[in-house]
Simulated assay, not measured.
Amino acid sequence: MIARLRVMKVRKVRKVLVLGLLGLTVLAGCGVAGVWAASGGFYGCTFRDEALAEELAAFAILDVRPPDAPKSGKRYSNCDEDDGFAAAGQYYEHTGPREELLAFYRATAAKDGWQPGRDRRDGLCFSKPYGTVTAHLSVWFPSSYGMEGEPRANAEEYGLEVTASHDGSAWC
């Protein structure tokens, strides 16, 4: 009889533990789903990412260029729906050697607090903290990707782009 009571108590305790864990799992899932839905939706960018893209467009580094590098087009800002990160950038044209341009941005970025990252196959990558996120600055050449623009004669188009995300998915 005592053994039977012990078995019943163990089963009761086990049942309470299983139901409690199940309840906590459901509550946690609702909390995560609520935060996810409130932050922007079902896929891609959140409202916070859209706002972050506008903030990135105001970064002063996007206006820094050598004297012989006029703007090529307007400043852009957007959010990458596939990867969920914010981006802003500006295209320029440059008539000198690439290495000269890259040296200019290595020095300029360092003065502005950007830390060098891995060099891209077509340019440079830097990063620095921005609020609660990490911003990434890239200097790149569209021609390296077969994206030919219409630059002036003897000029090459290049881009400056800053990316960041609240979930850490941004990169150069």
Rank of each mutant, 00 (worst) to 15 (best):
P97F: 15
V139E: 06
Y91T: 09
V18H: 06
P70M: 03
A57R: 15
A60C: 03
T25K: 11
V35F: 12
H166F: 15
Q115T: 11
C172R: 12
V18G: 06
S72R: 12
A69Q: 08
N154R: 13
T108E: 05
V133L: 04
T95Q: 09
A107W: 01
V35N: 13
E93C: 06
A88Y: 09
D80C: 13
R118L: 03
G123N: 05
D83Y: 15
T108C: 11
F85T: 03
G44V: 09
A37D: 09
R98Q: 07
K12R: 08
Y91R: 13
P151A: 03
F47C: 04
H166R: 02
L19K: 03
L5K: 00
G117I: 03
L102M: 04
F85W: 14
G20N: 08
W114I: 07
E50Y: 15
L62H: 06
G73K: 15
C30I: 06
A107F: 11
Y145H: 05
P67C: 11
A164K: 02
A155K: 07
D82E: 10
D112G: 04
M147Q: 08
V133N: 07
K128F: 10
A51I: 11
P97R: 15
D80H: 11
G89Y: 14
C125G: 07
A155Y: 00
G84F: 13
Y76H: 14
A170R: 06
L5V: 01
D119Q: 00
R121V: 04
S144Q: 05
G146P: 10
G84D: 10
G123P: 03
S143K: 07
L24D: 03
V26F: 04
T25E: 09
Y76K: 14
E157Q: 14
T108A: 09
P97C: 11
A28D: 08
D68C: 06
A37T: 14
Y158K: 10
Y130E: 01
Q115V: 05
T46H: 05
L52K: 00
Y145W: 10
P66V: 12
E50M: 13
T132Q: 02
G23H: 05
G29R: 02
Y105T: 00
V10L: 13
H136P: 08
E55S: 15
V26T: 12
T95S: 01
L19M: 02
P67W: 14
L27W: 11
P97E: 12
V133Y: 03
Y130K: 07
A37G: 13
A57C: 07
A28M: 01
V64K: 15
E161Q: 08
E55L: 15
G96D: 07
D49I: 03
A88I: 13
D167R: 12
L52Q: 10
P97L: 15
A37I: 06
H166K: 12
E100A: 10
S138W: 02
S138N: 03
L22K: 07
E99T: 11
D119T: 03
S138Y: 04
P142D: 00
T95I: 10
G159H: 02
